[in-house]
Design a protein around this nucleic acid. Sequence first.
RNA 1: GGAGGAGUAGCAUAAUUGGUAAUGCAGCGGUCUUGAAAACCGCCGCCUUCGGGCUUGCAGGUUCGAGUCCUGUCUCCUCCGCCA
Length: 425
Amino acid sequence: MIDIKLLRDEPEVVRAALAKRNSALRIEDALETDAKRRALVYEVEQLRAEQNVASEAIGVKKKAREDASDAIAAMKTIKDRIAVLEEQVREVDEALRYALLTMPNIPHDSVPPGASEVDNREVRRWGTPRVFDFEAKDHVDIAEKLGIVDFECGAKLAGARFSLSKGAGARLERALINFMLDVHTQEHGYTEVLPPFMVNSACMEGTGQLPKFASDSFRVENTDYWLIPTAEVPVTNIHRQEILSADALPLYYAAYTPCFRSEAGSYGKDTRGMIRQHQFNKVEMVKLCAPEDSWEELERLTANAETILQRLGLPYRVVTLCAGDLGFSSAKTYDLEVWLPGQNAYREISSCSNFADFQARRANIRFKRDKKPEFVHTINGSGLAVGRTAVAILENYQEADGSVVIPEAIRPYMNGLERIATATA
RNA sequence: GGAGGAGUAGCAUAAUUGGUAAUGCAGCGGUCUUGAAAACCGCCGCCUUCGGGCUUGCAGGUUCGAGUCCUGUCUCCUCCGCCA
């Protein structure tokens, strides 16, 4: 949520931000609603002040056993007037709240302009895509031949966009989860948390999934529970409605969770394989910090995610998302794209964002260093998407005979296994 | 799932038949002191158009006025049932 004061005092800044994002959203109605709300609230408060004074006088009279019926009758009028005004405040409040909750974040100055992903800017590359002396297969062919992923069975158990990992395939994902968590907790200073995989609506609103993007997530019927689309939701909301002490910052959390996404609107996209599924595993990094530190913290968090790719020897590039491709809540996002020989392309494997105070304002996460509480800044990023990491390993480390070499970094997590040649290897 | 009890500032405790949230500790600032402690004074939840308004888990209701009465709801505790 952007600051209502920014909208009120510098509407041109908000207009420019919306234009940069290629958004057609208008702010005139919100401004008008805000002015109306402030006038109403002022009037209510004036009446309430009058009421408080009169009420106290009635109390004094009653104590002295004097008659106060005239004053009480007079108060009745004010009471009714307040009731009418308050109903109006409620309506206007709701309208303004909705307007603010559906307004996207202001992109940072360093975010390049652009309408879609074609305008994203490459920042750097690491590693060199391997040159194969045989025809590189994609992960579906590799995994099915090895018998370590069963897509048919995923469809039988749940439906399209689900799969069943088996044997070394299941072990590989578990190994990756442990490897990533160990690196982030032991080397990068993150505290591991294991949050609920379902959250309530307040959390979804806090991080920006609601009210605008309800159809992207799964809701549990007849409850207020949502399956988390990312660990970002429960982990950021750990400190919802809290005022943290300044010396508690920065907070670093790392969490493994499965993620559930409806993938509405992506019909026909990535239908093959494990690239885009309704459920996938992810290790997520989340930071809460002081405002002046958040840009540096974003760079460091991105570097933390890159470390995983480097340790696994997977070539990748880093791109800065352009304003038009930027997520709703984000002020700036770096995508890490891993090289996939099976697609002959770089594909997103991590998304690292600084939300500035946008989520903190929604979730009301503050800290106190002087007299006034201030909103923290929130940063998060995948470290990494586990399913896509497994895909990248299968494709980058495949051999001509169909086997897959296991990167050295995770062999300790695979009971020393050096190569997957069969499901039970 | 059933029965009972409890939620008041960071913590701990008050508030008469409903009368407008008190006190202690902790913390911050000051006086005093070589420094510190003690003592004393002030601050010690949020918003504000600086008039004031709001705040007793949350949301409503009754009332001129609600920590107190009523309804709903959440969390925690105890017991029973069930369960991993």
